Simulated scan of single mutants.
Amino acid sequence: MEYIRYYESPLGRILMSCDGKALNGLWFVDQKYCALTLSEEHQEKNTAVFDRASEWLDIYFQGREPDFTPPLAMKTTPFRKKVWEILLTIPYGQTMTYGGIAGRLAAEKGLSHMSAQAVGGAVGHNAVSLIIPCHRVVGTDGSLTGYAGGIDRKVKLLTLEKVNMSSLFVPKKGTAL
């Protein structure tokens, strides 16, 4: 059985899901792919997992770096899981590029290169937003692209973390990425 609970954040309502032991979903309710991995059979219930995740979110939205990660269960493919594990290594207040993640994956697999587009797809389908920090991934040129929660939210999250935004930009509409 999966359980859900809502969290009211300064950037919009968040839906959390868990299996009772670990968090397996955290989405802004209006974001792309919201609840994509949530099973049809679920019920709203308070759990210790949600209490821990809410504590993490409270600290985060106060502009501080949480010093713990709630228990996570990644319901995804092996490739996406590897990408999400890399996302967990991006330090608070810093960014990494899609190409940087692709290069790291290629090196780990002994390959000459890996598709940054494939990495982008995995990042975009991250089911545990914020805690697995997909908002910290930017384009190689500094473009703020590809956040399922919306670019405006991405800017606010990076600003909250005091990321140096001087070399980052939002692409103009119609610009090829």
Rank of each mutant, 00 (worst) to 15 (best):
D19Q: 09
T77M: 14
D67K: 01
D19T: 07
G146P: 13
I86V: 05
S54K: 14
T95D: 01
D141Q: 09
A118C: 00
Q31E: 12
T140P: 02
L38R: 09
K45D: 02
M114T: 07
R104T: 00
E65I: 07
Y98D: 03
L38V: 10
T175G: 12
P78F: 08
S115G: 09
E85M: 05
Q94G: 03
G121M: 09
G110M: 04
F79P: 13
H125E: 13
D141V: 07
Y60C: 01
A107D: 08
I132L: 05
S112W: 06
K162G: 15
L87A: 00
F28Q: 07
P70S: 10
A102S: 07
E161F: 01
R153D: 08
D51A: 15
V128H: 04
R52L: 15
D152I: 12
Q62G: 11
L88W: 00
A107M: 07
T95W: 01
V138Y: 14
Y60K: 05
S112A: 10
N24G: 01
E55T: 04
Y147H: 14
S129K: 04
G124T: 05
L111Q: 14
I151N: 10
H125M: 10
S115R: 06
L87S: 01
I86Y: 00
V49Q: 10
P10C: 03
I132M: 07
P133V: 00
D30G: 15
G150M: 13
C34Y: 06
H113L: 08
E44Y: 04
T140V: 08
K32Y: 06
G103Q: 02
S129C: 03
V49F: 11
H42N: 07
G146K: 09
G146Y: 10
L87F: 02
S112M: 07
L168S: 07
G149V: 10
M74D: 10
E41K: 13
